[in-house]
Design a binder for these strands. Sequence first.
DNA 1: CAGCATCCATACCGTACCGTATGGTTTCTG
DNA 2: CAGAAACCATACGGTACGGTATGGATGCTG
Lengths: 180, 180
Amino acid sequence: MLDRAAWIKAAIDLLADGNLDGLRVEVLAKRLGVTKGSFYWHFKDRRDLLDAVLDDWKEGRIRDIRKQTAADPGEELGAIRHTIAIYSAARNRRGIAIERAFRVWARQDPRAAAVVEEVDAVRLDCARRLFLARGLPAGEAAARSILLYAYVFGVALMHCDGFDADLNAARNRITELIAE
Amino acid sequence: MLDRAAWIKAAIDLLADGNLDGLRVEVLAKRLGVTKGSFYWHFKDRRDLLDAVLDDWKEGRIRDIRKQTAADPGEELGAIRHTIAIYSAARNRRGIAIERAFRVWARQDPRAAAVVEEVDAVRLDCARRLFLARGLPAGEAAARSILLYAYVFGVALMHCDGFDADLNAARNRITELIAE
DNA sequence: CAGCATCCATACCGTACCGTATGGTTTCTG
DNA sequence: CAGAAACCATACGGTACGGTATGGATGCTG
């Protein structure tokens, strides 16, 4: 007895294990222990699922972002550090994999691109607020917001495990470079 | 009359238009105006092509990186700025698309991961040299190298077109934040 | 209890692709 | 010129998947 929410949840899970091309109806059904006869009861077609996944992700992301960047006055620096730490590759590997999958998806699907753009707009705006509260001028706050998120998404695409002896120290230095 | 090099070149081109899953033997053959009968003359199978593509990309990347980061003494700051500018999303969209495709590929294929790791090691090492020449301590130089490449790869995954009024100004500010 | 809605399984068709087998054509070579 | 090698087309079998059609099982409802 599945509903759309269960399919969407499993779809995002499958997405995290690969990319959009790995998100197949029959593979998903097998994971859920049913056949695709069930799928086509809940969804018109594959595109219907993809759109639902995009909506689900968008809402969840925007809610989380607003929660994570809500800082009491004077606590903005901690909130910035926390935002960077959340995407630290060490833990939260799952969350990063999902982010990457959606962003790669956005490169080959206009609807996904629109959703990612909306999410990024919220993200950047929330980050900018934190930098502005710290007294940075508008242009500087905007630049640092872009740098912050470009960095966290960029490290998710790199393989720098064997580069520095102390990667944690490097991470802390980078955090301070961005957060000031 | 094609040779392996022509197939590899076309394969990277096709890779840039999508991702690894879009790199199909028959699609590639159609692009080159031949049938897959030709492909299986030059390559054992699809994996053979993928390995050849990885080798080709690795060599080309490492050569380019060494060329781009070769700076005369005293010109290191300019070389750092230039390195960032090369991956500026405005021009060079093709190069960025290729980079992204290889990095996403590396997430689902150990051989690709090994190649990307090699390329990143060279990249980070070359960048670190530039920062060291500017007098930064070792840890700081390493951190900035990681930040530099994470940033340029990260912006390739973001959609921040409508965020700041003057994106170019933001880019310049970010460049200075990284390069000092 | 009859009938309808919900939820899923089975069976089927069509398509896109990988890899092989085989034959044809051109060019090089002894 | 005979034969071999290089290069490619055609034809085939196998697999994975999207989507549809249909029927079965369960539960709700008048």
